[in-house]
Amino acid sequence: MRHTFHLLGPPEVRRGTAVVEVGHARRLSVLAVLLVDVNQVVGVDKLLARVWGDTPPRQVKAALYSYMSRLRSALDIPIVRRSGGYVLEADPQDVDLHRFRALVSHGRHDEALALVRGEPFEGLHGEWFASLRETLAGEIAAAELDHVDTLLAAGEHESLLPGLTTRASERPLDERLAGQLMRALIGADRRSDALAHYTSLRHRLADELGLDPGPALRDLAASLHRPQWNPSRFPPSPEAFTGMERELAALDQDAPIVTITGLAGAGKTRLALHWAHEHAADYPDGRLFADLGDRDPADVVREFITALGTTPDGIPPEPHAQTALYRTLLADRRMLVVLDNAADTAQVVPLLPGTARCRVIVTSRERLPGLVTAHGARPVVLG
């Protein structure tokens, strides 16, 4: 029966759903060291140092050999002596620590965070475990922030406010967290509260660290003072447009994202632009247009940020921060965004406003199933 190993909380081993009795904390520590480096040889000296520190007791190697024997017996899993050390052979996906890191690397932060049951390696002592615990606390906090960015992009401003407010009070100098709280407040139409939080953070940074907020946070605050720009970056309406009544009716249906797909020459761009010009009055805060082709979406994000009134020195250098700023600028606007000639879903996702108040029309020769399944896009197929 399959074993699963849990380190992101009180360490335990399960065989199926049953908890396996491993033994006292020292034996659990030996197991934990092997699981951290699963399928890799851990040298005896390294293992002893991690479990017992710099001053191991006499006869410590005899104790280690005894622990290994008891672990093999209790768990019935391969712990092999090899090349001056030991290796525990198991599927890394059965170890919550390694599964957590794999999920984070694939952007599946909600699933990764669901694996965390408490303080990692709870009850295990020593400098090595303390250092690893600190490292993992940072990884978990980063995954939480990344997950919040995803939820903010999806327009979950109101639901995030209680948790963000609590975390911001616990970590008052964390600028990324402060930016997230400000974006949630802006998206919830609480711009004055967002500005008040920035002012409080700015004073605290100056008093306690002698620092100013970073450029991304400064520009986010500056956007609260700027007049709302209403850009209109559209090609002219196509001349002599006729037909496509069924497709125009489909575009009239309420959906934050619509894909218009079909072969070259099917009239995708003409349809999108005709509808956009006919419905310009429905989007009083402006319209954005980009012919994507083979362009890097990060370049388009920067163009859109500039069109929305941000000066070049106010654009943060990191692509994820640029996308966050773009979505913040659109958070309380009603705008139409047309993304023409998209190559694939990945090219489009960074350009999604993340709010249902905006409308996005995407044209492509591809069907873009990722936009339909993951982002709820309504497909309109020509031809």
Rank of each mutant, 00 (worst) to 15 (best):
G123N: 05
T269N: 08
L181S: 13
A280Y: 04
A196Y: 08
R176V: 10
A137T: 14
D110F: 00
L352K: 11
A264H: 07
E127Y: 02
A250N: 06
L75H: 09
H125M: 10
H225R: 14
L151N: 09
V41E: 08
L205V: 11
L35W: 01
R81S: 11
L152D: 10
R302Q: 09
A206G: 13
A264K: 05
L308M: 07
E127M: 06
L211M: 13
Y67W: 03
L352R: 10
F234P: 15
L103C: 10
L251Q: 01
P379W: 02
L75Q: 11
A196D: 15
E239N: 11
L103D: 01
G383A: 06
D207N: 12
E127D: 14
G309D: 04
L31K: 10
G179K: 07
E139S: 03
L251R: 02
L209M: 14
P317C: 04
D94P: 06
L34Q: 02
Q180R: 15
R333H: 14
A221E: 13
A343N: 08
Q93H: 01
L97A: 00
L271P: 04
G107E: 15
R365C: 05
L132F: 09
N230I: 00
A276E: 01
Q59N: 12
R367G: 00
F121N: 05
L185K: 14
N39V: 07
E239G: 03
R233A: 01
D285P: 10
L263A: 13
V338E: 02
R287W: 07
D344R: 06
D340Q: 01
R367K: 12
V300L: 06
V38Q: 04
A32I: 04
F100K: 14
S66C: 02
H147G: 09
A377E: 09
F121E: 04
L185V: 15
L271I: 06
I361K: 11
V360M: 00
L330Y: 05
L145V: 15
D96H: 00
L217R: 15
D54V: 03
R191T: 14
Y86A: 06
L351D: 13
E208W: 03
R133P: 06
H98S: 03
K268R: 13
H279T: 15
A343P: 08
A280C: 03
G210R: 14
G309R: 08
L8V: 09
P215T: 15
P231G: 05
R15M: 02
L382C: 08
G376E: 07
F121V: 03
V300R: 02
V33S: 03
L48N: 12
G262K: 00
P369E: 15
L217P: 15
V22A: 01
R176P: 04
A184D: 14
R108P: 05
A272T: 04
P56L: 05
A90I: 00
D313W: 00
G43R: 14
